[in-house]
C-alpha cells in the first residue's frame, strides 16, 4: 500500500482527523501564552511611560536620572540618589553573599553527609521563604543594634577618620551598609541553591579526571567542578542581584530613607523601590506621582541592564570554556 493511501485503511478517518489538527491547536495555545508574557511586558512599559509623562516633560530623562535633588515640597525630583542607593546596596549584598553561598553550595553538593543533606538544603531554602518584612524587622531590632555597636561605631571612630567610605557619624545605624547586609542574607539562599544544583550535575567523568590524577577533594572541586559550573553559578548570582535590586520592604526598613549620595557607607540613603513604596501613598503633587512612576521605569531599566550584563557574562564564560 502506498503511503498516500494510508487514510483508506480501516480507522483511516480517525487517523486523518488526528493528524490534521492536533499539532496546530497545541501550537496556537502555546503561542498565545507565550505572547501573553510579551503583551504584559509591553503594557507595563506603556503604563509607566504614559504615567511619567509630566516628569519627563519637566526634567527630561537624562536630567531626571542625573539630578541629586529630591524635594517634594519644592517640586524638585532627581533620581540619582535612589539609583545610587539601589545599585550600591545590591552590590554590597552580592559581594557579601556570593562567597559564603557558593561554599554552602559546595558543601551541600559534595561534602555533606547524606543524612544531613536534605534537612540542611531545606533550611537554606526556608531562608528564602521568610517574608521580607520579617527580615526588615529582624534588621531593625537585632542586626542594627549589633552592627552599630560592633561594626559601624568602631570602624567610623578608627579608619573612618581617614577613609571617607567609613566616615561617621553613625547615629541610629540605618544606612547603606546595613541594608546591603540584610539584602545579602536574603539573596544568599538563592545563590546557594543554584550553586548546589549546578555543582551536583557536574558529570562524574570530570571529577574522576581529576581524581585519577591524584587530586585532593578540594582540588577536584577547584579544578573540575567550579569551572564546569561557573556559568550556572554566575547565573545564580545574577538571580540574587535581581532580587536585591527590586527588594522593597526590608531595604525600606533599614536604609534610613534619605535621598542623598554620601561617600560613607554608614550614612542613610534610599533605594528606588523603597522610595516609591514609601512616598506613592502620600504624593504632594501630580508631578511627584509622575516622578515616582518615572523612577519605576528607571528601576525596570536597571534590572534589565543587570540581566543583560549577566547574560553577556554567562555567554562569555561558557564561550571561553569551549562551550558544550
Amino acid at each position: 500500500m502506498a503511503l498516500t493511501d494510508a487514510f483508506s485503511r480501516s480507522g483511516g478517518l480517525r487517523l486523518r482527523q488526528r493528524l490534521q489538527h492536533g499539532d496546530l491547536i497545541f501550537w496556537l495555545v502555546a503561542l498565545f501564552f507565550a505572547l501573553l508574557v510579551v503583551a504584559l511586558l509591553a503594557i507595563i512599559v506603556a503604563v509607566t511611560w504614559d504615567g511619567s509623562d509630566e516628569a519627563r516633560d519637566t526634567f527630561g530623562i537624562i536630567g531626571f536620572i542625573t539630578s541629586t535633588e529630591w524635594n517634594p515640597v519644592a517640586g524638585e525630583f532627581g533620581a540619582a540618589p535612589a539609583i545610587y542607593g539601589t545599585v550600591v546596596s545590591s552590590m554590597i549584598a552580592l559581594a557579601l553573599a556570593a562567597p559564603p553561598a557558593i561554599m554552602i553550595g559546595v558543601f551541600l553538593s559534595d561534602l555533606c553527609p547524606d543524612r544531613l543533606r536534605a534537612p540542611l538544603s531545606l533550611m537554606v531554602e526556608l531562608l528564602a521563604a521568610i517574608p521580607s518584612v520579617v527580615y526588615g524587622m529582624w534588621g531593625v531590632f537585632v542586626l542594627i543594634p549589633f552592627y552599630r555597636t560592633f561594626i559601624a561605631s568602631p570602624l567610623s571612630e578608627t579608619v573612618g577618620e581617614y577613609i571617607p567610605l567609613f566616615a561617621g557619624p553613625v547615629a541610629v545605624g540605618r544606612g547603606l551598609l546595613v541594608a546591603g547586609m540584610i539584602l545579602a542574607i536574603m539573596i544568599l539562599p538563592t545563590i546557594a541553591a543554584v550553586s548546589r544544583d549546578v555543582l551536583t550535575v557536574v558529570p562524574t567523568h570530570q571529577k574522576e579526571a581529576m581524581l585519577a590524577l591524584g587530586a585532593t577533594r578540594w582540588e577536584v572541586i577547584r579544578h573540575a567542578q567550579l569551572p564546569y559550573a561557573r556559568a550556572g553559578i554566575v547565573g545564580g548570582m545574577m538571580l540574587g542581584l535581581g532580587r536585591a535590586l527590586g527588594e522593597t520592604m526590608a531595604a525600606l526598613m533599614v536604609i534610613g530613607n534619605m535621598p542623598r549620595i554620601e561617600a560613607s557607607l554608614f550614612q542613610p540613603a534610599t533605594t528606588a523601590a523603597a522610595q516609591i513604596a514609601s512616598q506613592l501613598p502620600t504624593t504632594e503633587s501630580d508631578l511627584h506621582a509622575s516622578s515616582l512612576i518615572l523612577m519605576a521605569l528607571v528601576l525596570f531599566l536597571i534590572t534589565l541592564v543587570a540581566n543583560s550584563i549577566a547574560r553577556l557574562l554567562v555567554w562569555n564564560v561558557s564561550r571561553q570554556s569551549g562551550g558544550r
Binding site: H205, Q206, E208, A209, M210, A224, P227, R230, S321, G322
Partner: peptide, 9 residues
Amino acid sequence: FQQPNPLRG
C-alpha cells in the same frame, strides 16, 4: 577512561 574527559574550561 572510556569517555574522553578533557577538563572543560
